[in-house]
């Protein structure tokens, strides 16, 4: 168990969070590179998202006359909530003191808070696109959230704790066990992650002016550093879902002790796992077409059904008579 008064632990947690925030654009750059290669396009450098962010931070934000305080505050609220969420998730080491701040349910709450302000900001200026995007985002999230919570409950029923660090500890200590419930929960989580981070087939992340866009429609009015913060928060969210999936379902390699060797191993394994997950995402995005918005509920119903089956199979198959 973590020692909460250990300054070394807090320092490591801080460094881990900084690494998390700094690495998020790189993950997006890597996915773009993979997609471009798969589609026979010439790829931009994986560092391109950093250059975009630097460029946007250097520009003056232009704010509409009709915008209220919410519009100006939203980028900071969204970005800081997302960073706090990132701080809670074990990236390279488990049992850091920050893990005790929040369990998975609070984590879902953090994400919901960020989404709430994002939707408010989308509606604030009063353009048609913003309101449309906000309403769509809320539709998707109201269906995605129960599925995600159900998948998480499946996990926590097995690990008997809602704390992520405890769940990872449990997975590591029980060794390699083929669990039907985890298989279903993993697929459910993957579908929810795709929907919530606005990837194909639910939303197209590369679009800028389409009637069907979701995320881009909400941040259409933003410019300059506000836009940079919003973009960065979106990239962080993708990374959060990615790390959550690879570290909870496949935690092997994560550092359990705070020695330099263990931390280095943890860093390398999490990078390899994230790169592999990005390959899966890029292949899926290249192979699939964006579906109609009205089919998104079906997609999320499937995610919910998978999570529900995960819970049922936990009760029926794993606990047993």
């Amino acid at each position: 168990m973590a020692d909460y008064l250990n300054p070394q632990g807090w320092l490591l947690a801080l460094l881990q969070t900084l690494l998390f925030v700094a690495a998020a654009p790189l993950l997006v750059g890597w996915i773009r590179l993979l997609k471009a290669t798969l589609q026979n396009r010439r790829a931009a450098s994986p560092l391109q998202p950093y250059r975009d962010l630097i460029k946007l931070f250097g520009k003056e934000p232009v704010v509409a006359d009709t915008a209220s305080v919410i519009f100006r505050a939203a980028p900071y609220v969204v970005f800081s909530t997302t960073v706090v969420t990132a701080a809670v998730i074990p990236l390279i080491a488990v049992n850091l003191p920050t893990a005790a701040i929040a369990d998975v349910i609070v984590l879902v709450g953090f994400l919901a808070l960020a989404r709430f302000f994002l939707a408010l900001a989308g509606m604030d200026v009063g353009t048609a696109f913003g309101g449309m995007g906000a309403s769509r985002e809320m539709t998707i999230s109201s269906l995605g959230e129960p599925a995600m919570l159900m998948a998480i409950f499946t996990l926590t029923m097995t690990a008997q704790s809602t704390n992520i660090a405890h769940a990872i500890d449990f997975m590591l200590s029980s060794g390699f066990v083929l669990r039907p419930s985890f298989m279903f929960a993993l697929f459910g989580m993957l579908l929810v992650a795709v929907a919530e981070t606005g990837r194909i087939p639910v939303d197209n992340p590369t679009t800028h002016l389409e009637l069907t866009m979701l995320h881009e429609a909400m941040i259409l009015e933003y410019s300059g550093r506000h836009l940079a913060l919003m973009e960065w928060a979106a990239q962080l969210k993708l990374m959060i879902y990615g790390v959550l999936i690879v570290n909870v379902f496949l935690p092997w390699g994560i550092a359990t002790r705070l020695t330099p060797q263990a931390l280095l191993l943890g860093l390398v394994t999490v990078l390899v796992k994230l790169m592999a997950l990005a390959v899966v995402l890029a292949v899926a995005e290249t192979g699939l077409a964006k579906m109609r918005l009205f089919r998104a509920p079906e997609f999320l119903n499937l995610a919910f059904l998978l999570a529900l089956l995960g819970m049922l199979s936990h009760v029926i198959l794993e606990v047993g008579a």
């Binding site: 390699f176 066990v177 083929l178 669990r179 298989m183 089956l309 199979s313 198959l317 606990v319 047993g320």
Partner: peptide, 22 residues
Amino acid sequence: MNITHFTLQEQAILIIAALVLF
């Protein structure tokens, strides 16, 4: 009976059973 008492092959049977349900 808890799943951790099973061998890997028996766990695989449970996985396939879950897939049949799916």
